[in-house]
Amino acid sequence: MNKFIFSDCTSVDAALSQMTGEAVVKAGGVDVLDRMKNGVIEPAKLVNITNIPSLRGIHETETGVRLGALVTLAELGDHPLLQSQYTVLADAAGHAATPQIRNAATLGGNLMQKVHCWYYRSADFACLRKGHDMCFAYDGLNQYHAIFDTNVCPSVAPSSTAVALSALNASVELTSAKGKRLVPVREFYIKPDDKHPTMETVIAPDELLTAVLIPKPAAGTRSAYQKYGEKSSYDWAIADAGVVLEMQGDVCRKAAIVLGAASPTPRLAVDAAALLVGKPITEETARAAGLAAMQGATPLSMNGYKVQLFPVAIYRTILLAAGKMDRDPSAAG
């Protein structure tokens, strides 16, 4: 890890004043230190925001909940209100990484973590997503890579809380010296394109992610998240799904299905969700939605298995959300 100035800030204004040039913002530090240890980034300054009190806390409001950027994944996973009314988020945070990581990792950091690809995260590969001119994953080892939106960079979105928040149609609050703006999580992440391959989110260099706002769920809303990995104790997702259902009696009135580890950004499976609307949730409808979510998949040389795994993850998570199936004991986390 390179040497750096540690700029310890106790207010948002102070942190904003420090975010210049080579500075990198650090909260829990899990993703930032990992990339520094890999030599992928060598920031001259770390702006520490963990001592800013206003970024803490889970607050119930008239319109939903407001989550401070520094709320830890453990706090999200253990929170009774989130467990009961925003289950998909509590599940996603509570099953991310390890207990030790969940105690340190923050919601803001989890949302801001960089995409997953071992070429991108290695200093030995000057890849497209790091601002160079080629992608190593197409002809290389790509078993954990994307099966959608693979045309520029087939890395995957790693944040499980982003999957949940996208399903809940939450927004992130971005603060700069000029003021605040809200951006829906569904519009926060950017698919890599040829012109701006290095951009991952719409956040500007002078903006700090300060909070997440989730709208109050409509009556009859049920939700769930499940993640599949190579081992069950803890793992990065190779396929994960967040499902939010708005039920009226037995009939589904509204549905959102979001996939992680499928694309460089959390993927909203709109057509699959539409198949559930106006019908009771049954094994048949859940299966049909899972299969429909794979329409248009473009798997790479080594990850065709994901096209079979995702429908199972989606089907089981729809039934879990509807209360018609237990949590899968073989799911990860």
Binding site: K3, F6, S11
Partner: peptide, 8 residues
């Protein structure tokens, strides 16, 4: 509200 420490 800012303390700068290091790099030494």
């Amino acid at each position: 509200h800012v303390r700068e420490l290091g790099p030494g």
